[in-house]
Design a protein around this nucleic acid. Structure first.
Lengths: 211, 211
DNA sequence: GGCATTACGCTACGACTCGTAGCGAAAGCC
DNA sequence: GGCTTTCGCTACGAGTCGTAGCGTAATGCC
């Protein structure tokens, strides 16, 4: 979401097509140039707008890229496949497909890096990207508990911690595999990952390795 | 490792103290300014060397920061606690402690981001940071198999895949927890994570993808 | 239609960083 | 001393930043 104008109903309205063009141009520039060489002047030229228009709507490079990348996650949906394993595999493959795109790789990780020193930026990322992913975890887990595939958790604090843990394990593994290891998240990998995760969460099918 | 001079035995040798000062100054600048606002001129001033000296030794900002951050991982060691769970918890806590430092957060993630468009940089990161972490996974797993805590794996290809999976799950979860979720990797979290991971791995067969 | 208000495109600007070149001096090996 | 390489310093063109100013375009209100 760009910078809000002061709630005025009068005057010339902002061009909606310009917004879309700017965000698309930002993604194109991310693909071609990457984060560090991306300049706002270049984005403005690609989008066919003036550089000043860009600065009127976004505070800077960080906020612009967050919005441009966030749109990529609009398509993320929880499949209703009836089995928890299939649900997880479906979500992971969707997430990996988005993350495999170069504009997602360079853009998303760059703003996450910047967010380590900028709380407002972190909130922006959380609201427009992370929470959307996390909702899939919460809903998928809830469905699995209804089906008896996962043990129920009555304590809300413990349930919240478990949700956080699952989220960090799923998203973290996919991101690390893609960006650090530089290997593809293909179906074979997803099957292995899902197997380990599910066995670990179910807690019944295998005995904990205690000595 | 800085740019090598052309194997010359003669002439004035490079100052070793300058190297150390530059890397320390880089970390200090990362803490104070973060990645995006870090400039090589500023680092040179902090280190008490000329900017040109910096450019003679490192190709650019990326390579310099990789070296500066890599030194942080020198202390990483595999504890010999006798139990796999304790080994994992120890390694994870060590890794998390390093990653919690601001120079590691902003520096490491930034160069990983840049590495998405630079294969040479990716190799550099792999050699000086990632492989060192991964060796802990390989060795810890090997020990656990000798103790019977994890099932052995005869097929070397499958074993390699499993190692990759474990590595991505461990490192990915810690990184995601620290950077994206922004929550601390404390002992409580580590215990929960280790429990899930170990239960998931305990039933591992030689061909987890078969089905 | 006329008016107020806001967004837009364009130009220009000082400040900053970049990466490099050139110079004289310093610090080693023979 | 002579040779070689590094070092500190200065200076430079090129590029980007974020902003200001101006005239114009597009809307709501009367």
């Amino acid at each position: 979401m760009p910078i809000r104008s002061p709630a005025s109903r009068t005057g010339r309205p902002r061009s909606a097509t310009a917004d879309a063009a700017i965000l698309a141009a930002t993604r194109a520039a991310l693909v071609e140039l990457g984060w560090s060489k991306l300049t706002l002047g270049d984005v403005a030229t690609r989008a066919g707008v003036a550089k000043t228009t860009l600065y009127r709507r976004w505070a800077g490079k960080n906020e612009l890229v967050v919005d441009a990348v966030a749109e990529l996650f609009d398509e993320l949906e929880l499949p209703d496949s009836g089995s928890l394993a299939a649900d997880i595999e479906g979500v992971v493959l969707q997430f990996a497909a988005i993350l495999a795109r170069p504009e997602a790789k360079s853009g998303l990780m760059a703003v996450v890096t910047e967010a380590t020193r900028d709380d407002a930026l972190r909130s922006r990322i959380r609201a427009s990207v992370v929470d959307r992913q996390k909702r899939l975890v919460v809903e998928g887990r809830s469905r699995a508990q209804e089906r008896g595939e996962l043990p129920p958790e009555t304590d809300p604090a413990a349930a919240s911690r478990t949700e956080d843990l699952i989220f960090d394990m799923v998203a973290g593994a996919v991101v690390h595999r893609t960006l650090v290891s530089g290997e593809p998240v293909d179906e074979e990998w997803v099957r292995g990952f899902t197997l380990v995760l599910l066995r670990g969460l179910a807690g019944e099918t295998a005995h904990p390795a205690a000595g």
